[in-house]
Amino acid sequence: MSNPLTKFLPFFTDAEVPHTVSARPDTGLYSAKVGIWLFLASEVMLFGGLFSAYIFLRLGAEPGYWPAGLLNVPVGTMNTAILIISSITVVLAWAALKMRQFSKYKLYMLVTILCGLIFLTVKLSYEWPAKFNHFGVFIKKESASKYEEFLGNKHLADSGQNPRWEITGHLLDAPKGSHYAHQAEHNAEHFAHETGRHDAVTAAEDDYVIQLDAVNANPSDKENDRPHFWPVPMTEKLAVISAKDVESASVFAPRHSTYFATYFLITGLHGLHVLGGIIVFLYLWLPFRGGASLYKTNPEHLANRVEIAGLFWHFVDLVWIFVFPIFYLL
C-alpha cells in the first residue's frame, strides 16, 4: 500500500534524508532522535507553564476554595495503570523490531494503540460527562450560616480544617431562566423515578434544589473530612438554596472554579497528546510505506521511527504521572 499523502505533499517524497539510521558524527545520534528531544524540551516548557499556573492558582486560593475528592479515584487509577502498560508495550514493540521479530512488533503496537483508545474513551465517555452533570453552588460568605446544616463549618472550624463554601450534587430544580433548566428537569425525572418522590420541583422560582453529595448531606461527620477512595453514592437528601445567597453556580465545567479550569485545560491538552500518539502509532502499525511496510526495505529505520514515537508516548505518560496525583489525590 503506497502512502496516499505522497501525491499531495512534497514533504513526503522520496528525497534522501540523511542520518535516519546512521549516526551523525557530530551528535553521535540519528537525527530524528535529536529532533524529538528538542521537541520534548519545548513540551516541558508548555506543560511547565501550565503546571506553574496550577501551583500559582492553588497557592492563591482562599481557604476552602480548593476542592478535594471530586474526581473518581478508582477510574483515574485504572487509567494511570493503562497508560503505564502502554508505555511498557511500546518499548517492547521497539525492542521486538530491533530483534527483527515483526509479528511481536505488530502485537505489542496493537496493545499500545488499544490502551491509548481505552484511556481516551474512559475520559471522554465517562469521566468528563459525569462532571458535566454534577452541579456545585458556591454560597456567599455572609449567607453561609443559613446553610450550616449542609456546610458544617462549625465542625470544620472546631477541628482546625478549612471552611466549606460549596454545596454539590445533582441539580433538580434551577431558578427561572437558568441555563441548566433542561438538565434539572432531566435529573428531577430520574430522581422521581428512583425514589418515588416528587418534592424536588416544588420550590419557589428563584431557588436551586440540589440532590446532595454525602459530604454536604452529613458535613459534620468525621467520615467526610477526608476524601474516600471509592466514590460515595449520592444521598436522597435535598437542599433548597435561594439564588440571592449564591455567589456562583454551575456544572463542573471549566467555568465552575479555578480547580476545574486547570483540570480541564491540563487533562484536555494531555488527552490531545494521547490522541496524537495514537494517530502516529496507527501510521506505524498499518502497512503504509513509511509505516509497517518500511520493515521490508529498512527495518532499522522503522525501529527508529517507533523509538521516536515511543519517546513522545513515554513523555505523555510522564506528564500523567504528575497530573494524576495533583488533581485526583492531593
Binding site: I84, I85, F324, P325
Partner: peptide, 12 residues
C-alpha cells in the same frame, strides 16, 4: 513496568 504499577498503588 511492574515497579511503576506498584508505585501508582503506593501513590494512591
Amino acid at each position: 513496568g511492574a515497579a511503576l504499577l506498584v508505585l501508582t498503588g503506593l501513590t494512591v
